[in-house]
Each structure stands twice: as C-alpha cells, then as structure tokens.
C-alpha cells in the first residue's frame, strides 16, 4: 500500500479532522419514522448528531469538523468548523447549531428542486448519493493534505441508513481504495434497518469501525464511546467489531458463494461455469484452456 504522496505532517496528539457524511434521504427517513418498530425520526437524529459535533469541537480546540450531506439527487458541504465562525474566540455552541440547521434546510430545499420531475418510482427506498459524498470528503481531505501546513489526522464518519445503490458500486469501491491509499479510516454507523455491504467493505478495508446500533435512542452514547475516539488512541483500544463478516465472492450468474470459478480477464466478473461470452462486458472468452480442463475433470470423475 505505497502512497505516492509525501507523508503528511500530522500533529502528534489527538487533533482530528472528522468529515461526517449525513444521509438526508427523505424517503428513507420518512419510511423509518412510519415503521412502528423503530421510534426514530430525523429530528431525534439531529438531536443526537449536532451535540456530537459540539462535543468533537469541545475535545480539542484545533479539532476540525466538516459536515457533508448525501441527498437523493445531490450532495454538498453543510458545515465547516474552520470557516464557520470568523472569530478566534472559539465557536459558540448556539451559533454552530443554528448554522448547521439553516444550511441543512437550504440543502434539502435545493435537493428537492433538483429532484423534481424525477419520477423514479419508489418501489423500494431510493438510495442516497453516497458515492458522491464520499468523493467530496476525500477531495476535502486531499486539499488539507496539500495545504502544506501541519494538519490534523483525518477520518471519515458515515451516518447512513438508506439502502445501498447497486449502480454506485464501482464508484464507491474506487473511493474506498483511494481512502485506503491516503490512509483515511472510514467509520460507519448504520442507522437504518438493514446492514450495508458498502459500509462494511469500507470500514474493513480502511481499518475503520462498523457499527449498527441496537438502540437508536442512545445514539449519542454510541457516538461518544466509539466514534469520538481519536486515531492515536485507537492503536491501543479495542473497538467493537462485527463478527463473521463474509467477503467471499459469489458468482454472477447464480449468486451462490464459490471458492473456485472462472474470471473474465477483461472486466473481472466471476462465473461458476465457463461461458462463451462474458455477460457483463460482452467480450468473448477463448476456450482452449477450459476445454482441456473440462476433459480432464470428466475423466477423473468417471
């Protein structure tokens, strides 16, 4: 995992740059609040999240928090603690809260306007633009790296709940790999009802923490106990881990888990049986090798 960028000049202690990615998908939040099983609404979520931002800023004067909202049709920066309040005397808490809320409102309104006329039916719950938000976060972190001055240790915290969008898979994986190269851990906190494969992968590959809280009314406690830990302390703390995550591949044709299979050399899609043509990229697969192998296998089976 060699990174070509020069090692960033990090502070030696717990100064952190935390980029928080919020899920502002109204369909998800609306459905969640309608589900009787959960007692959670967007306002309750904000009730936990904004004080958490305050607590992060409290921990260290030089801590830097950035909020990015992942909407349905767009994503954007909501809040940046470095540019938010001009004065040096520390950000006043009420100012922070009101700023976040007003910017959030603006963003949601804009998101709605952009999405109007988009008659995507709501068969399942639509996914939010997670890949876009992740890219925004990584770009911001890169900009901080290249600013030349000493900077805090960055990490990304994803507060997602919407289901994963299959069309975003490639983009999300690319983002995850670039985060891995820049050594930026991606923490995930899933507030929805289902687990998210994207976030599991992200946290596993980049060395972050993946958590799906059991009790959403104690969300603030989850935040402070797990996600507020700075990177330096993580090296000698044990943080909760999901057990038994399975990253084995499954074939594209039947979706069953396989150990050995055939891989298309062009697009790297996996099949359990040899095909003449790859169904993902359409390239022809030459068969001399596979035929020989087949013949051999047939003989041995007999």
């Amino acid at each position: 995992m060699a990174s070509s960028a020069p090692p960033p000049k990090l502070y030696t202690d717990d100064v952190s740059l935390i980029v928080i990615i919020l899920d502002t998908n109204p369909f998800f939040w609306g459905t969640l609040s309608n589900t009787t099983a959960s007692n959670f609404s967007f306002s309750k979520f904000l009730n936990h999240m904004i004080p958490f931002v305050n607590s992060l800023l409290l921990l260290n004067q030089l801590n830097h928090v950035v909020l990015i909202a992942a909407g349905v049709t767009s994503c954007g920066y909501i809040y940046d603690s470095a540019t938010a309040v001009a004065s040096d005397g520390g950000q006043k808490v009420p100012a922070v809260c009101s700023e976040i809320l007003s910017r959030l409102e603006e963003f949601v309104a804009k998101d709605q306007k952009l999405g109007n006329g988009d008659l995507r039916t709501v068969g399942g719950v639509m996914s939010s633009l997670f890949s876009g938000a992740l890219s925004l976060a990584l770009c911001y972190i890169q900009r901080v790296f290249r600013s030349g001055m000493q900077h805090p240790q960055p990490r990304i915290l994803c507060l997602q709940g919407s289901p994963d969008g299959p069309e975003q898979y490639v983009a999300v994986m690319n983002a995850i790999f670039s985060a891995q190269r820049s050594m930026v851990p991606i923490d995930s906190c899933v507030v929805g009802m289902q687990h998210s494969a994207f976030l599991q992968q992200a946290s596993y590959i980049t060395g972050g923490v993946y958590l799906k809280p059991q009790q959403l009314d104690g969300l603030f406690e989850y935040f402070t106990a797990v996600f507020a830990t700075d990177l330096q302390s993580r090296s000698f703390l044990q943080l909760p881990r999901p057990v038994g995550v399975d990253f084995r591949a499954s074939c594209f044709c039947h979706k069953k888990t396989i150990d050995m299979g055939y891989v298309c050399s062009v697009c790297l899609s996996i099949f359990c049986k040899p095909h003449k043509k790859c169904s993902t990229c359409g390239s022809e697969i030459s068969h001399s090798q596979t035929e020989q192998l087949d013949r051999k296998r047939k003989l041995s089976e007999v």
Partner: peptide
C-alpha cells in the same frame, strides 16, 4: 450492478443480527 449484487448477497447473509427487517423497507410515501 452485477458486481454489487454478487457482493451484497454474501455480506448480508452472515450479518444475521437480531433479524430486524432483513428485507428492504417498502416506501409507501
């Protein structure tokens, strides 16, 4: 999407958890 589906199938199988709502939520809004 095919890449995603093949990954998804496996990852979610094992995270059995407390079984709350493994199927996607239906949005009726």
């Amino acid at each position: 999407r095919e890449y995603f589906d093949s990954q998804q199938a496996n990852a979610l199988k094992t995270l059995g958890d407390n079984g709350t709502g493994m199927k996607p939520m239906d949005c009726n809004l």
